[in-house]
């Protein structure tokens, strides 16, 4: 077989020619060349042998164990995803509960604590007159945190859904005092 640039080009086109994918111009060009070139006719024969042999290769049935393994992995993925959603949901609800409790604690300071008590211990009035030791602030912060965590646990474990349901109409006295301490220390730039 003699090679020239014409044969090189035709040989590359033979794959598409045998697949029937050539446009009319290139198809005609290949056919003209094949009439005159024995080497490219041999190449076309090899192309067709390759095509026929590989195209006729039978599909091999995929074993069921492969499908089973895929589905087991898919199920495991789904279970992990569901568990993750449950975890996110739990943490999300817990964060929301703590946030609600914090807000409720502030509101409780204003609305739940009787006005008579508020009159006796006025954090704004105390701000200008009283400063708090670091220990007192830390203690107050710990008591508020503990109480809110306790309330969150109670909400989580029971049917109760608000802080007023947990503590009745008023916060425990010690917490009220701690909230006031923290509020006034923040006002005074101490917190």
């Amino acid at each position: 077989m003699t090679f020239d640039t014409g044969c090189d080009r035709i040989e590359i086109l033979l794959t598409s020619y045998a697949a029937g994918d050539l446009g009319p111009d290139e198809h005609a060009e290949v056919e003209r060349h094949l009439v005159a070139c024995q080497g490219c006719r041999g190449e076309l024969l090899r192309e067709r042998t390759l095509r026929d042999t590989l195209a006729s290769m039978p599909l091999i049935p995929c074993p069921d164990r492969v499908t089973d393994a895929v589905m087991a992995a898919v199920d495991a993925d789904e279970n992990r995803a569901r568990a993750a959603i449950r975890r996110i949901g739990f943490h999300g609800r817990r964060r929301a509960a703590v946030g609600m409790l914090a807000a409720a604690a502030v509101l409780a300071l204003v609305f739940v604590v009787p006005s008579s008590e508020r009159a006796i211990v006025d954090p704004v009035a105390e701000t200008s007159e009283q400063t708090w030791s670091e220990e007192e602030i830390l203690t107050a912060r710990g008591e508020v945190r503990f109480t809110l965590a306790l309330a969150a646990r109670i909400i989580e474990k029971t049917e109760k859904s608000t802080i007023s349901e947990v503590f009745g109409q008023r916060l425990p006295g010690v917490v009220t005092k701690s909230v006031k301490t923290l509020a006034s220390s923040l006002e005074g730039g101490q917190g």
Binding site: P58, L59, I60, C62, P63, V66, T67
Partner: peptide, 9 residues
């Protein structure tokens, strides 16, 4: 179901 045999083959 549709593609497993082809991918495996």
């Amino acid at each position: 179901r549709t593609h497993r045999d082809r991918v495996f083959s």
